[in-house]
Amino acid sequence: MKRIRIVLTAIFLCFVLSSGAFASDVTEQTELSRFQIFAKSWVVKLNRSHIKGIQRMEIRPNEDGTYLARYHAIDPTSVQCIVKKTSSKRKGLIGLLKYIETVYESTGSSPKTARKSDFKAVKRTRITEIFSNSGKGWR
């Protein structure tokens, strides 16, 4: 009788502990999905408002009389999202948003042709941003 009680207690504890871990995994997956939605809209905002973005393309003359057009853009396909629990005693999550910002350049005989020519990627920079969520959404 004592052994049965010990076995049943062990089974019960395993069930309780594993169901908590499952609930935690589900919560983290839900928050990852929410963070991915937030990150997508964040990247759209960054691309739209970047001081050196395509809407505010830099055009400058070269020494040889041609013009250089340059802008920065984030490739949405390069976005990676990671969600982790914080190490603090208060409940909360951190979200890591990783992406690649690319600098594109083009040349032309005039500012207009430089703006309309084929742009080539000349520099890529990996960027990581950290966001937090303590129950009030991602910030």
Rank of each mutant, 00 (worst) to 15 (best):
H72R: 02
I82H: 00
I127C: 06
Y67V: 12
I59N: 03
L46G: 13
Q36L: 08
K91D: 11
V103H: 07
Y99H: 01
G20S: 15
V44H: 11
T128D: 06
T9K: 12
V16L: 14
R60V: 02
D75Y: 00
K116I: 05
Y71G: 01
S78Q: 08
V43A: 13
N62G: 05
P61H: 02
S117A: 10
S106M: 13
S19W: 10
T66N: 03
R126C: 03
F22E: 08
K136R: 02
S132W: 05
K84G: 01
T9H: 04
L96C: 04
V79C: 05
S110M: 03
I59T: 05
S117N: 02
K40T: 13
R126K: 04
W138H: 03
K52P: 00
L32N: 10
K98G: 07
T9S: 15
T66A: 01
S106D: 03
F22L: 12
T128L: 00
T102M: 05
K123M: 11
I74S: 02
Y99S: 00
I130Q: 05
F38H: 14
E28D: 14
Q36D: 15
S132A: 08
L32T: 15
A69T: 06
R3H: 15
K52S: 06
Q55V: 10
I4R: 15
K45N: 11
A21P: 08
S106E: 01
N47Q: 06
D64T: 01
Y67A: 09
L46S: 08
E31M: 13
L93I: 00
T30R: 02
E28S: 13
W138E: 03
K2F: 06
V83N: 00
S18C: 09
D64W: 09
I130T: 05
E58G: 10
G92W: 07
S87Q: 09
A114W: 09
I94L: 03
N133G: 01
R90E: 10
K91R: 01
F12I: 15
K116M: 06
F35A: 01
W138M: 06
T128Y: 07
S110G: 07
D64R: 06
S134D: 11
T66D: 06
Y67E: 04
C81F: 04
T77C: 05
G20P: 02
V7D: 03
E31F: 08
K85Y: 11
I74D: 00
I4K: 15
R56A: 15
S106T: 07
G65A: 13
G108D: 02
A121N: 04
K123H: 12
I54Q: 12
I6E: 07
E105A: 09
T107H: 03
G92C: 11
